[in-house]
Design a protein around this nucleic acid. Structure first.
Length: 302
DNA sequence: GTCCAGGTCGCGC
DNA sequence: GCGCGACATGGA
């Protein structure tokens, strides 16, 4: 199956837009420039999906989707829908690109087809993963997420290739002790439990955060109200919801910013806020593009 | 052993 | 509103 690509879309830059592509049940095959993902359809079917951009000539490229099992037309439609959501293929970035073209430092973005940030099929997965990035090394984030899948996700039926990301129900069903001892999430355990249990009890509906019309500042407050989520995590969750008004500064971005703009001399976050202030509702995305530009260049010399 | 990682919470002022 | 210590874990 193939999907038509939106304008200014580069598959591999979207895949490598941030660390998510390295967290299960995503998996990158660098040599093939391929992204694999284990997904669950609404009928419960679990599939391994492999994605790659076809290398046809000028303007004819498409996204190729191959699946490890036979699928019906209805299932194919749902696969396409989930993948489009992950790769942000339905979002309109034309205004962002127009703005980017005005600034010399950002003209590379539309040229490169960058700007789309990879996200998970569900908000729940993005939120859990974001909590697992706080106050720890990236290596530990990978361990925590790997354990979540391996020990609380469901195994793919006909192979040993991997596990699904756990549902809120699966997390809500275990004890805090299990999350600490088996999943190794440490003090985050009560946060993940509370989140999952509030979801399964129907007290909150975080999936509705995508495509809702709540003003961004109100949505930010709502995301912040989740225990374990502060300004860093909330700002970045908002980016995965398609809203870029908040920076979501962390130690990695902070360090990069001062390397790039202050020759390594550090300063307060107020300096960073001020620098991107004029970018309005796109400031969070410009900030991320700015601090990852070099990282991009390493991955895709051009 | 110590320090720090892609922070956040709850407290006291 | 702001500063501060506590918080689990793994790796240098």
């Amino acid at each position: 199956m193939t999907l038509r690509l939106p304008p200014n879309f580069n598959f591999w830059k979207t895949v490598y837009s941030h660390g998510w592509c390295a967290l299960q049940p995503f998996e990158v095959e660098k040599e093939k420039q391929q992204l694999n993902r284990i997904i669950v359809l609404s009928n419960g079917k679990k599939l391994i999906v492999s994605l790659a951009q076809t290398s046809a000539h000028s303007g004819k490229e498409k996204l190729n989707i191959s699946v490890n099992d036979v699928t019906t037309a209805v299932e194919k439609r749902e696969i396409a829908k989930q993948i489009s959501a992950c790769l942000r293929m339905d979002e309109d970035y034309s205004e962002f690109y127009r703005e980017a073209r005005k600034h010399k430092n950002f003209q590379w973005i539309p040229k490169a087809g960058a700007g789309r940030l990879l996200r998970s099929p569900t908000v729940f997965e993005d939120v859990v993963k974001m909590i697992c990035t706080t106050n720890c090394s990236w290596a530990l984030t990978e361990i925590m997420v790997g354990n979540l899948c391996k020990k609380l996700g469901r195994k793919i039926d006909d192979s040993s290739r991997g596990w699904t990301f756990p549902t809120a129900e699966a997390v809500a069903d275990v004890t805090e002790k299990f999350l600490r001892k088996e999943i190794r999430v440490g003090y985050r355990a009560p946060y993940l439990l509370e989140l999952s249990r509030r979801i399964t009890k129907g007290e909150i509906d975080i999936e509705s955060w995508r495509n809702c019309s709540i003003p961004t500042s109100d949505l930010f407050k709502e995301v912040l109200s989740i225990k374990g989520i502060g300004p860093y995590a909330a700002g970045n969750i908002l980016k995965l919801l398609g809203r870029y008004d908040y920076l979501g500064i962390d130690s990695w971005c902070r360090k990069k910013f001062f390397e790039i703009h202050r020759n390594g001399r550090t300063g307060s976050d107020k300096v960073i806020e001020k620098y991107y202030e004029s970018f309005g509702k796109w400031k969070g995305l410009f900030f991320w593009m700015d601090v990852t530009k070099h990282w991009y260049a390493q991955k895709f010399p051009f």
